[in-house]
Amino acid sequence: MAETEFINRADALADFVAGIQTADWLAVDTEFIREETYWPELCLIQVAAADRIACIDPLALDAEAMQPLRELMLDPSRIKVFHAARQDLEVFHHEWGALPGPVFDTQIAASMLGHGDQIGYANLVQALCAVELAKGHTRTDWRARPLPAEAVEYAADDVRYLGPVFQQLHTALEKGGRLEWLREEFDALLDEGLYRPDPEGAWKRVKGHRKLRPNQLAILASLARWREEEALARNRPRRWILKDQALVDLARRPPATVQDMEDMRDIPPRVLQKHGEAIVRHAQAGKEATPPSMAATPDRLDAHQEAQVDALMALLRARCAEHDMSPAQVATRKQLESLVRGETELPLLRGWRAAMAGRDLEGLLAGRLTLKLSEGRLVAE
């Protein structure tokens, strides 16, 4: 296999990019740190293509030096292969203000071929390449320079085998006629809205928000919006501004003064000193605000409806077994419960999911299909 190139000079990066210009696809991964920041801090970019592998050091290269790689990554004629792409795409969107499409996510692709919903990269490499990857650098400080040679090789392995994995998955999916199924999954990853901050909707991510009454939810929304904006402005994790539990407690007991918060254990004195007045201001503003809309908690299903869900789940499992897929990749039990309640705006009833199982599930629910056992298999007639 190709030797790893560690690139921290502009001329070396330009040479590498020139050397892989003929590649139809690039295997890509990143290493980043975000324990102390709101945004991920990009520390390393790994790229494999055309029999070359590079670990590129963005900490040593300015925007001008990185431009050849940026242009290559944003070239829509090349597939960018990732494993579990969401976080890597967030990194690139933050760094470049754009997403490197089109993408192929090997984790999603593997789920279409019976490897489970969220198989890890190392397990997938073991399954498809019979290679056991090293695990000794999972806690490496990727900001450290110089990086140990072993850490660089560990990072390079994340793309060294990603290409062979991609090729095997692509071949199997093409043979099974499932590549088109994946198109909408991969296109969804390129929705820029996934990677933009949303202060107005920040309350939805607060653990415990569903336990609040509407008037309390309005206070939470005001406080969560302030926390999100503060975290963004300071580039600090949300929890460093104020913990989720503190937001929920404040929503239940909105303070009129800073002193009202002195006995709240999840709000330390340093936070009161720094943010106390702002917390009071936004809590009081929330008291006057209209509560945000939240989907109502659905009524519990009765015993007959639960039996219908069980039947739907059985048919779904049977359909997925035929395709060697995980049922969770097609629909969750909650979605089947929604189907029983009469909802129709469900992913299950669109695209490839509808063709594979959704229409049959609707047919079973409407009485157009029945289930029976035939030679040990569940079949629908």
Rank of each mutant, 00 (worst) to 15 (best):
R205I: 00
H209V: 13
K211Y: 04
K211N: 13
R213Q: 14
N215K: 14
I219D: 01
I219S: 00
L220W: 01
A221C: 05
A221Y: 01
S222C: 10
S222G: 12
A224D: 07
R225H: 12
R225A: 15
E229L: 15
E230A: 13
A231L: 06
L232R: 11
A233L: 13
A233Q: 13
W240S: 07
I241Y: 08
L242W: 06
A246G: 08
L247C: 08
L247H: 04
V248R: 04
V248C: 10
R252A: 00
R252S: 03
R253A: 08
P255I: 02
A256C: 06
T257D: 03
V258G: 02
I267V: 15
P268H: 10
V271G: 00
V271P: 00
L272R: 14
L272D: 05
L272K: 06
Q273W: 02
K274H: 12
A278V: 06
A278N: 11
V280T: 07
H282K: 05
A283N: 09
G286R: 05
K287L: 15
P291V: 08
S293F: 07
A295F: 03
A295C: 04
T297V: 14
L301G: 02
L301H: 02
A303L: 12
H304F: 13
E306Q: 13
E306H: 07
A307C: 03
Q308I: 09
A314E: 12
L316I: 03
L316Q: 03
R319A: 13
C320K: 04
H323Y: 11
D324A: 15
P327Q: 02
